[in-house]
């Protein structure tokens, strides 16, 4: 068996030599290395966000009222709009990967541009229509936090601060990932347009795609957990 493996190695024709890093023997090895490497990075990302989701779960079970009342300060309409934006951006991302895989360089760059425009749209909704009003309503923990409902409702300011702390920590971390995603897509798109040699190989775009879909998945969970806690 081992001898056969060796045999195949020596007959390797090195067909894609120009896109093959020196440490790899062939493209197949290189491609799967990249995919597995990206996935193990995504595993760290899953646990990174996962720990925050764990905090969320523990406190939501302990303080259901704080989460109920806190979420009423959020607008499900904006959340839903942002979900649509991100889902659409995931679609444009796979179309970009598809174009790259089939050798349509310019098309791929166009879809990448569309994706980053959508991502920027997501940030605009997030910052202008969600975070900024929170600032105006004094809902940013530690900055100017004021929980006006304390007198009338059943949630103490500390618990509300906890809810908004989690909200800003989780959507903020997600937002940072979106910003990084935009940066990656801008760089890749530019390189594609310039026909840079590293983007003649579709793998960088596919890896960016994996990253972007992960960002999408996080939002798929954030949306119901923060915006759809329950109508009374």
């Amino acid at each position: 068996m081992s001898v056969e493996a060796a045999h195949s190695l020596h007959n390797e024709p090195h067909e894609h030599e120009e896109h093959l890093a020196h440490q790899f023997m062939n493209r197949e090895q290189q491609d799967e290395s990249y995919i597995v490497g990206m996935w193990s990075f995504l595993v760290t990302e899953i646990l990174f966000f996962g720990a925050l989701f764990l905090c969320y779960s523990i406190f939501r079970i302990q303080y259901p009222m704080a989460f109920q009342e806190g979420h009423e300060e959020l607008s499900w309409v904006y959340g839903c709009a942002n979900t649509v934006i991100l889902l659409t951006s995931s679609l444009t991302m796979v179309l970009s990967v598809h174009a790259a895989q089939t050798g349509k360089r310019i098309l791929s760059a166009m879809w990448l541009a569309a994706t980053s425009v959508l991502a920027a749209g997501f940030l605009v909704v997030k910052l202008a229509f969600e975070w900024y009003p929170k600032f105006q309503h004094h809902l940013i923990p530690g900055v100017n936090f004021h929980w006006p409902h304390e007198q009338f409702t059943e949630v103490a300011a500390g618990k509300a601060e906890l809810f908004f702390g989690l909200y800003f920590a989780m959507t903020g971390l997600h937002g940072i990932h979106v910003v990084i995603g935009i940066g990656i897509m801008a760089v890749l798109g530019t390189m594609l347009l310039l026909n840079h040699k590293s983007t003649q190989y579709y793998m960088p775009i596919e890896l960016a795609g994996l990253y972007w879909h992960f960002v999408d998945i996080v939002w798929i969970f954030l949306f119901p957990l923060f915006y759809l806690i329950g109508k009374r």
Binding site: H16, H19, R27, E28, D31, V84, L87, T88, S90, L91, V94, L95, H98, A100, Q101, T102, G103, R105, Q200, Y201, Y202, M203, E206
Partner: peptide, 22 residues
């Protein structure tokens, strides 16, 4: 440019997208 990648038909992507929206 095309490598060893599995190229999924675009139709699949659109179907998934519609499912996600639903």
């Amino acid at each position: 440019m095309s490598g060893h990648a599995h190229v999924t038909p675009v139709k699949v992507y659109f179907t998934v997208y519609v499912l996600l929206l639903m």
